[in-house]
Design a protein around this nucleic acid. Structure first.
Lengths: 248, 248
DNA sequence: GAAATAGTGTCTATCAGACATTATGGC
DNA sequence: GCCATAATGTCTGATAGACACTATTTC
């Protein structure tokens, strides 16, 4: 590890009020990638191969490449594909964390995105890096995380839970086709709480975001369930009447 | 304006996978500061004195100073005090915008915070800079803004409106003591929609976040209104039952 | 038919919106 | 008394939660 303080040529840049600043923080993008595997909410982690925090698990991510990356979001997308090989159906900016202390090498800032994807049996990456899915317990994982990643993960879990209550994002944790009981189980796993079947179905169908698929899917036993597909995979939709302005 | 590409000593830093990156984006913090003035939602803008966008109005902010600023948030607080002289009661990170195109000088990223404050009759700043409150119309202002600030402002207005529906943040737009009709008018101004008095009061009082102040405040005419104070100015509180998990 | 799961019907307490009514000040 | 505004009371339609019931499959 080497600290490379980056300074402009001091002689050529006297304090100009609106010039780009000389000494700059290092800027990275990290990802919190969620999926449902084995009836658990899991998050993708990478084992660090270099200092600092060698051998420690961390959120996948990396420094912005000003040559390659057009924008923060495209950097996040690039990293996502690098790690998972998947264009995850849902990617949302979570928050930016930056301070002098969070990385021993110096001032860094990281913009964190969180992504949702269906569990891919093809496991994460065939890469040189050690990558694994780690089950989420409470609001974190059962191992030490590098940097401030434990806090970041906790924020992401909280955001995921709270967004479940007023959006449809959970569908992005399932394959394109799924049944209502599967969707309900997804909610229950994340919220860690059983839900009433009738209320859940009413809520989902009233939102009018799913469309039936002709075929049926059979589970282990019992009556087969209707298969659904998310109507508009891109549109950001909200449950009705979760908040209603009380108009006059 | 001068472009100062910042590169590490190429001879000394061969591609190290986890070293801090050489060429870095410039990183800044911008603020969307809201208040209510003259029965309007207004936002604080600064007239740019230097290129790019000389003479154009822009959101206040500036580059991170890695010497001075401990963290992004402390940088935001510093800038806020610089511009307003006020420790605004509410400061929240909005989003981070970064791309190669948003600033003609090169790759920049900016983390934007939005702040709420009571209208201060002492006007904004006695500074050399031209600073003014600009009324918000729809989701923007009636003038050109520098960089991508118009889009940022629109995002901030949207966030403010949507947060009104399930939090109490509007109280931070009023002085410490206020009446319920004043609070309701604040909501109506921001949501651009009349609200029912009875429903509004029920909502506010049920949330149990206000406490009465002994005295009364008289308005222009009519019956004087009870004065209230926000119970816990720091606690982040939510309206009850705006979303209820349907527990079993 | 029994077991298991999917899916529907119905009842009820609660609540948001609507609106009427009362209260309290200035003039 | 009249006006203006604050504050409260009441009614009603809608709905979330609860739970009973029906439907459809495997064994």
């Amino acid at each position: 590890m080497k600290i490379t303080p980056v300074k402009p040529d001091a002689a050529e840049s006297p304090p100009q009020p609106n010039a780009l600043p000389g000494e700059r923080a290092a800027f990275s993008v990290d990802l919190v990638i969620f999926t449902i595997r084995s009836q658990r909410l899991q998050v993708l982690l990478v084992k660090r191969a270099d200092p600092p925090f060698v051998g420690c698990w961390a959120l996948p991510g990396g420094f912005l490449d000003v040559e390659m990356d057009e924008s923060i979001e495209s950097c996040a997308l690039r990293r996502l594909v690098e790690k998972t090989g998947v264009h995850a159906p849902y990617l949302e900016q979570l928050k930016t964390y930056g301070s002098r202390e969070r990385d021993p090498r110096g001032w860094t800032a990281t913009t964190v995105y969180f992504a949702l994807m269906a569990s891919d049996p093809a496991a994460p990456g065939k890469q040189r890096e050690a990558v694994r899915w780690m089950p989420v317990q409470g609001d974190g994982v059962n191992c030490e995380l590098a940097f401030d990643h434990a806090g970041i993960l906790a924020d992401a879990v909280e955001r995921l839970r709270s967004k479940l209550e007023y959006t449809h994002i959970a569908v992005h944790l399932l394959p394109e086709e799924f049944t209502l009981p599967e969707l309900q189980r997804t909610y229950e796993i994340i919220l860690q709480q059983p839900l009433d079947k009738s209320s859940f179905r009413r809520r989902v169908t009233q939102a009018d975001m799913l469309e039936e698929v002709a075929g049926k899917l059979r589970d282990g036993c019992g009556r087969p369930a209707q298969v659904y597909r998310f109507r508009d995979y891109d549109r950001r939709t909200f449950f009705p009447r979760s908040i209603s302005r009380y108009a006059r």
